[in-house]
Design a protein around this nucleic acid. Structure first.
Lengths: 203, 203
DNA sequence: ATATTGTGCATACGCTCCGTATGTCAATTT
DNA sequence: AAATTGACATACGGAGCGTATGCACAATAT
């Protein structure tokens, strides 16, 4: 392996720490994860961690930002091949439920994130998922397909409903049987935003 | 003060610990709260705590159960003087948003609760709030006013949407101006559950 | 090329906190 | 009244976080 510049080394250790943190936080939860174990697993010590991220919560923030970005990408992908904008919103909604079934996402982003970093809308990563939903709703509203509700409020409600549904599905005995129920209920809920004679309603 | 029986003393110390825990968890969060300080504030030691609640999470569970019960009572009260069952559901929904604005409820029940005790539906307190919503939805559905969605799913979605909206409202700069927006959006969402020609739609 | 400075990270230390094991004294039992 | 139970306090050990300090190497200066 060729010699590396200092900045490259720095980025590499950051990446290693984030990867190790992601694994540890997902498996044990943020509170129970030990910084000593975590860093040792990455071939480093706590010194590197405090130098790069300030403190334990700093690493959590970095991990959350990474996972959040991946979530947004996956949700966008799910909504990409939808016929209409409205179907795109529905697809994105059910994609959120599916995303939240991922234990890693659930633990890190949905449970520990809000508990230790506070409200998601104030995270440095600025919650890419929420931004995507906001944008879709804005478009739909501009086309007159939705009732005139506050865009931000609608996005928050949708995301909140989806992630809570996912927590329920994930904690149940037979996730695969009640997952469709959750998606159906979410679709139902979303139809409440539709303007009266928009013509976009399913059948 | 007259002498007390042993069981009465026991209940009294439990109550004192729960009260102290409730205060400490609300002000500092569960993770940051010190059991030594907490118990000392109640004129006791950690010995009493471990004897009565097993461990730190045991106390959290007890506190959550208490607050959860109060939440359900307040939500029921808000929905009590509604004209119709449907309006009752709407009132309950906006009541949840208002409840979640309470910093104590937010911190203990909505943030630390799920993070440290897991999914609310599996709490020993069995989430009285959720049960109330479930029951209202069941009634409405029996009367044919709602689309045939899964009752549990609908209840989870509604509660999730409401609490997330509240987190958003609470973290904002001007809560009082965006609170009505959140309530309006929730009302909108809920109307998605209404059956087509139910006649219960507002105007 | 040698010296110097700065930086990335490791090591060492103190402090706090949790959980358990043990002790103690009052209340109940017989 | 002696014994036993149980509620709570005290004492102990271990672990973890954050900081202060040290070290080695890279980057720049001369």
């Amino acid at each position: 392996m060729a010699a590396k510049r200092r900045s490259e080394m720095m980025e590499e250790t950051r990446a290693k720490l984030i990867a190790a943190g992601r694994k540890a936080f997902a498996e044990q939860g943020f509170a129970a994860a030990s910084m000593d174990e975590l860093t040792a697993g990455a071939g480093l010590t706590r010194g590197a961690l405090y130098h790069n991220f300030g403190d334990k919560k700093g690493l959590l923030a970095a991990v959350v930002a990474q996972v959040d970005g991946e979530m947004a990408a996956r949700a966008q992908a799910a909504a990409a091949d939808a016929g209409s904008l409205w179907e795109g919103l529905l697809a994105e909604g059910s994609a959120y439920i599916n995303l939240a079934l991922d234990p890693e996402i659930q633990r890190i982003v949905l449970l520990d994130g809000p508990a230790f970093l506070g409200d998601p809308s104030q995270w440095p990563s600025q919650n890419a998922c929420l931004a995507a939903t906001r944008q879709k709703i804005g478009q739909l509203q501009a086309e007159g397909l939705l009732k005139p509700v506050d865009v931000e409020a609608a996005a928050r409600l949708i995301n909140g409903a989806a992630l809570n549904a996912a927590l329920w599905v994930a904690a149940s005995d037979a996730p695969q049987t009640i997952l469709p129920k959750a998606v159906a209920a979410l679709t139902c809920l979303l139809s409440g935003f539709l303007a009266e004679g928009s013509g976009s309603e399913p059948e």
